[in-house]
């Protein structure tokens, strides 16, 4: 089972290695100057050499991301349940929710820094604003897609609204919730970096910005690698949580 899953990543691994190899050859063949596009080996070297500085920034970004994602999860779940409570609330809130997503975060981030200062909170807010939407929408859809026959069954048992929600609809919407959370997790690191890019004392975003401004391309790439790894780790963590929380869902998927 585990071997099979690992084998599933085989093609992606081969493709990635091939791209890196071509990249390395292009730069080594002097088709592009190494100061403009550093070769993968140089990026790894820079990453290792600067890890003591980079790790501090990584820790900062990780903290903002995790806190922001946590707040987004709570916000998303509460919002989804509110949307579900009555069609009136849904009709009132849903359009505003979608409009909120049209605001470019790059424009909002400086305002948040004016309002909340240079410390952690504006970054956490940016992450939360990025992430609550996919969670709220996926979870609300999950709640709305409860089998009406199942609701009839609950009604015949004289279940209250809250019992139907607690016993049937919430657990039934958990797979949708986790789909939303997975998407949110992949967005979250980017959110923190956008926040830091505008103004920050620490973090991968400000590190990238300073490196780019001093024309040290290789360090920008090193920070990008850390960002990607961080995003993948978060994605993996959410998938792991889902496996632990919904063991029944796995066996159902593998049967299909």
């Amino acid at each position: 089972m585990t071997l099979k899953r690992l084998a599933g990543y085989g093609p992606a691994f081969v493709l990635a290695v091939a791209i890196l190899l071509i990249w390395q050859l292009i730069v080594k063949g002097h088709l592009i100057t190494a100061t403009i596009l550093p070769p993968p080996t140089a990026i790894v070297q820079a990453l290792l050499d600067n890890w003591d500085v980079l790790s501090v920034h990584t820790l900062q970004t990780t903290m903002e991301t995790v806190l922001g994602l946590g707040i987004a999860t709570i916000l998303g779940v509460v919002l989804a349940i509110l949307l579900d409570l009555s069609p009136w609330i849904r009709r009132a809130v849903y359009p505003l929710l979608i409009t909120s997503q049209t605001i470019p975060m790059v424009a909002l981030a400086p305002l948040l820094i004016i309002w909340f200062g240079l410390d952690l909170s504006p970054k956490i807010i940016v992450v939360a604003l990025y992430c609550f939407f996919p969670i709220a929408v996926a979870f609300a859809d999950g709640l709305a897609s409860t089998d009406p026959e199942l609701m009839k069954l609950m009604q015949s048992m004289k279940a209250t609204r809250w019992q139907a929600l607690w016993l049937v609809r919430l657990p039934g919407a958990m797979p949708s919730f986790f789909s939303g959370l997975r998407i949110a997790a992949t967005y979250s690191v980017t959110g923190a970096i956008v926040g830091e890019y505008v103004a920050a004392q620490q973090g991968l975003g400000i590190y990238m910005e300073l490196a780019a401004r001093s024309n040290v391309v290789v360090l920008v790439f090193a920070a990008i690698v850390v960002t990607a790894v961080l995003s993948l780790l978060l994605f993996g963590l959410v998938s792991l949580l889902e496996r632990i929380a919904l063991p029944w869902h796995q066996s159902q998927i593998s049967k299909r």
């Binding site: 069954l153 015949s156 919904l246």
Partner: peptide, 18 residues
């Protein structure tokens, strides 16, 4: 009448997480 009879719908409607 709700809650007074045992009603079994056409589909078994078992909850997959239970």
């Amino acid at each position: 009448r709700a809650g007074k009879v045992g009603y079994m719908p056409q589909q078994p409607l078992l909850l997959p997480w239970r």
